[in-house]
């Protein structure tokens, strides 16, 4: 039987833990993707996800509009991510801010270069998107969420999400296409500089 967020929130407030478990199951993908977007490159996605749910549970009584639980949860996730980054990242400032899967040997780099380069290229492309576009894109492509799920979590309407994703895809298509060309030029001219430096 399907309960709305609002019903589940009221059940939680009456002390029903199972209702909160339903909410966690419903939103963990969104929260995780958000956490990954902010803190994933430092390996904090899972920690942030748990902390965000705990924080949500702790401050459930402050929730003014239970029907907008998702958007409220997104706010909490953002805040918890920011706190997590403040707590943890200052200690490891020398870690590169981009997700890093690069292998060490040139041979390996050559073999897996296409997948790894894509990874870096996509992240750079996403960083180039307007701020407002980034989270819906992450939610859509990392967690393969439906437009409805994204809209519930970001608080935007379904049509807005649809517009955002359509424009974001067009932008990404263009950015990635340009990168592709320059990379191909690089390959013709020899190894890219970061391979050469190894």
């Amino acid at each position: 039987m399907h309960h709305t967020d609002e019903e589940l929130v009221y059940q939680c407030l009456e002390g029903d833990h199972d209702a909160f478990a339903v909410l966690v199951r419903r939103y963990q993908a969104s929260v995780y993707a958000t956490a990954f977007y902010y803190a994933g490159r430092y390996g904090g996605a899972e920690d942030v996800t748990q902390e965000a749910f705990w924080e949500a549970y702790r401050s459930m009584r402050k929730l003014k509009e239970p029907e907008r639980f998702g958007a409220w949860l997104k706010g909490i996730t953002t805040r918890v991510s920011a706190n997590w980054l403040r707590r943890n990242v200052s200690k490891q400032r020398n870690i590169t801010p981009l997700p890093h899967r690069r292998t060490l040997s040139i041979d390996e780099a050559r073999q897996s270069s296409s997948a790894d380069d894509d990874y870096e290229r996509v992240h750079r492309a996403i960083d180039a998107l307007p701020e407002h576009y980034r989270l819906p894109v992450v939610l859509r492509y990392m967690q393969e969420l439906s437009y409805d799920e994204i809209s519930r979590f970001t608080g935007d309407s379904r049509d807005e999400i649809r517009g955002i994703l359509s424009r974001a895809n067009a932008l990404l298509r263009d950015i990635l296409a340009t990168r592709q060309e320059t990379q191909e030029q690089d390959k013709q001219g020899g190894l890219p500089w970061h391979h050469a430096s190894k």
């Binding site: 939680c12 407030l13 002390g15 833990h17 909160f20 478990a21 966690v24 199951r25 963990q28 993908a29 995780y32 993707a33 990954f36 994933g40 996605a45 899972e46 996800t49 748990q50 749910f53 705990w54 549970y57 702790r58 459930m60 009584r61 894509d118 990874y119 996509v122 992450v138 492509y141 990392m142 967690q143 393969e144």
Partner: peptide, 22 residues
């Protein structure tokens, strides 16, 4: 690109195991 990063594990049990007091 993101297939590797996707959350596959269900975090619900971990979240519920250490649920704080409301």
């Amino acid at each position: 690109v993101w297939r590797e990063d996707q959350l596959r594990e269900d975090l619900t049990r971990r979240v519920m195991a250490h649920l704080p007091e409301m």
